[in-house]
Design a protein around this nucleic acid. Structure first.
Lengths: 185, 185
DNA sequence: CACCAAACAGACAGGTCTGTCTGGTGTCAA
DNA sequence: TTGACACCAGACAGACCTGTCTGTTTGGTG
């Protein structure tokens, strides 16, 4: 009964990996630890993911998927493009205020995987391209093309808030963003 | 003759560590590798630094010291505060164009050392505080208090340029910085 | 009920990690 | 010349890493 039902091990591993990889760093966490945290054997982990590398990719894809869900929620919740963009800053800040905040998982992964050709780095590019695309799409509707600038502010605030361990960078970033985005036409 | 003279091993280790830690990531490089690259025995490495952790701290301090030298060069090279600030953007970009660019060593270290109380993180905070102080000092002379904003732009450009593997984020950041800094009064 | 796939438990291989230790060698300074 | 010291060479301990393997148990399906 406490036993894992067939097909569930993969999900449990992914959840444990997400917690541990984000919290401690990818290289710092071994597959034994992930399996133990998931309450699953190493054989099950390898059966589902094949290798640690593939698990890492799956972990980032899962995070990207969850992030996309957040964006959809924001998009559904309001219609004003300006608000939609600024809501991303707020989302980051809420995210930051929860404890265990360690910055952007994708940027952290980039630090740990130096080779730009690594599959991990492709997932990172995919994620950042999607964010950029979202910003650009919203900004087009107010005749602005400052998506690049807003990306810089978001990335800058994300890393600075880890260094300083507070939300102030996001306040600064959002204030500047508000100046950059023209009000709805 | 090809032998290391007493007192030289430390410097050689530091140089090798700087290359390898920056290029491959800190956790990804073992002390054996560092010693071999330095052309020095592991015993000499431990004799000089005591532990890998302390070597990592020394590596970051050394990088901070070299960075401080760059800032001094910039400061000596021109007197206009606006130019001095914008020169930092240029310095980053030059730095980026050299191959093996892997972003900011201090931000990468932050990704690899999750514990904010770790000595590594203290060196990172020290470095970032110094950069912020430099910006603020220059900006005060033109009655601007946008040091926070410029920090965000620098950090954002640094990480984005790693993801995208080009200098465009720095062009965007510098353009916005130029708008933010008022001309000399 | 019988079977199969997927999980379990846990040992194992082969490699790497940090850190230590022994003993020999070269250099510099007194 | 001699002694102190920093280095070299390389073995070693003990922990941890990824990945594989054997054999057993269990849940879901035909």
């Amino acid at each position: 009964m406490g036993r894992t039902r067939p097909g569930d091990a993969g999900a449990k591993v992914l959840k444990a990996a997400s917690t541990l990889f984000y919290r401690d760093g990818i290289h710092a966490v071994g597959v034994d630890t992930v399996a133990a945290e998931a309450g699953v054997t190493k054989a099950a982990l390898y059966g589902n993911f094949g290798s640690k590398s593939r698990l890492v990719v799956a972990y980032l894809r899962e995070r990207d998927r969850r992030w996309q869900e957040q964006i959809d929620t924001i998009t559904a919740g309001c219609d004003d493009p300006r608000e939609r963009v600024l809501a991303v800053f707020d989302a980051y800040e809420v995210w930051l205020s929860r404890d265990g905040y360690r910055g952007c998982a994708f940027l952290n992964a980039t630090s740990e995987f130096p080779d730009p050709a690594d599959p991990v780095r492709e997932v990172v590019r995919h994620h950042k391209t999607a964010l950029h695309g979202y910003l650009r799409a919203q900004l087009e509707r107010v005749d602005s093309d400052h998506a690049d600038e807003l990306m810089l502010l978001l990335e800058g605030a994300a890393v600075s808030s880890v260094v300083s361990q507070d939300a102030q960078p996001f306040h600064v970033a959002k204030r500047l963003a508000e100046k950059l985005i023209p009000p709805r036409r």
